[in-house]
Design a protein around this nucleic acid. Structure first.
Lengths: 218, 218
DNA sequence: GGAGGGAAGATTGCATACAACAGTCCTGGA
DNA sequence: TCCAGGACTGTTGTATGCAATCTTCCCTCC
């Protein structure tokens, strides 16, 4: 049986990422505790973890709110991603992961392409997050995953793929395939370039490089 | 009056960074609570925050321990720093901070040089951390400070400057001065290059690029 | 009519008590 | 002598109650 804190954390995380807990909405400890059937203590702990992840902001004596992403936030996030993820891809290529890892990456590519064909964008987003996480793990740098969690959440919330056209979506899937090929070939420069193109394309698709405002009032 | 959680967090952070709490040592909640004159609740919360910062590792049902840095850890950390901090320096130069900010940076340079002359290495380390934090803040990216906290702690703990010779120390001080000049001149490429050199020099001084092991058993 | 002050309500912060789990030590058996 | 099993002890995890703080609304005064 998992710890109550973990269940609270996972549940809240899902609620936020799925949009069930709207951006900017208040997260009262007592209310959540009652909803989840727990006491305030593990809920409080989960909220702090979510705060460290950058999914909620907790203010002293004022409770927690789901974060709101502005255009400036997205711009910052994609700049950091286009800095760190190409590095991770290059490292992964240099490390030459063994065949089971590569097979898993290819499997995720295939699953994503099926989800695209089915029009299941939520599943695409989820698989995409797992794919990128796998590449980051394959980099061998054990600090990168933790560093990137905060910036990896944003696209999930904003709903990147919802804004993609058919061509952008196809390009994104091709990037994934090419990235796996570059890593399998052990070519760091290739992997790095593909990943950078992949991130920049995503940023362009969101208009994150133009400083668009997507925030709204509570 | 500050919150008990904050005092616990700050106190524990100082204890870890100063070495008073040795690397690998256990941090029992009850014991700390008694020492600090608080209850377990805020101590527990502080430990989780320190865990998110990467200063301690908390294992379920097994409590918290002060992290131990291996040579591989240092290598990872300096790679990430040499990726992110040059970017921050370039952004700061592009933003052209106003004169008060530049004056503060110059003031910290001067204070550091005085501390070096006095042989007060602890003060040098503290000022150095504040200097780098100021440059990162000047980058304008509000996510960078949080991302870098975990990797900025390591050099403080390991005691970077303790291993510096006179020439390496002088070079480091010159880097700081040159970095301020590059930012003041609004030259991103210059600022980025100086910062990269600065970080690589630090890594070389620690042997972080050679995979040395500095860990030990409890 | 608008601004300032204060009281009431609600919410977070902290302390304490109890429950559950992990590690250790002892005992019994092979 | 060594291994296995189980109780014991100490620690963390969770629940609950109280104190402190913030927010809101209303009343008073300008």
């Amino acid at each position: 049986m998992p710890r109550a804190t973990d269940t609270a954390y996972e549940t809240l995380r899902r609620m936020i990422l799925s949009g069930e807990a709207a951006a900017g909405s208040r997260l009262g400890e007592a209310e959540l505790a009652e909803t989840l059937g727990l006491s305030r203590t593990p809920v409080r702990e989960a909220l702090q973890r979510l705060g460290a992840d950058g999914l909620v902001e907790v203010l002293p004596h004022r409770g927690a709110r789901v974060v709101q992403w502005t255009g400036a936030d997205l711009e910052e996030i994609f700049e950091l991603r286009s800095l760190l993820e190409p590095y991770a891809a290059a490292r992964a290529a240099r490390l030459r992961p063994d065949e089971p890892v590569l097979a898993e990456l290819r499997g995720m590519c295939a699953a994503m392409e099926r989800a695209v064909a089915d029009g299941d964008l939520a599943r695409v987003a989820q698989l995409n997050a797992r794919f990128h996480a796998a590449v980051i793990d394959a980099s061998g740098n054990r600090r990168l995953p933790g560093m990137l969690t905060s910036v990896m959440h944003a696209p999930l919330i904003v709903g990147t793929f919802r804004r993609y056209g058919a061509d952008a979506m196809a390009r994104s899937m091709n990037h994934h395939r090419e990235l796996v090929a570059a890593i399998a070939a052990g070519d760091p420069a290739w992997a790095e370039s593909v990943m950078r193109a992949h991130i920049r394309a995503a940023a362009a698709g969101l208009g994150a490089d133009q400083g668009n405002q997507t925030d709204e009032e509570t």
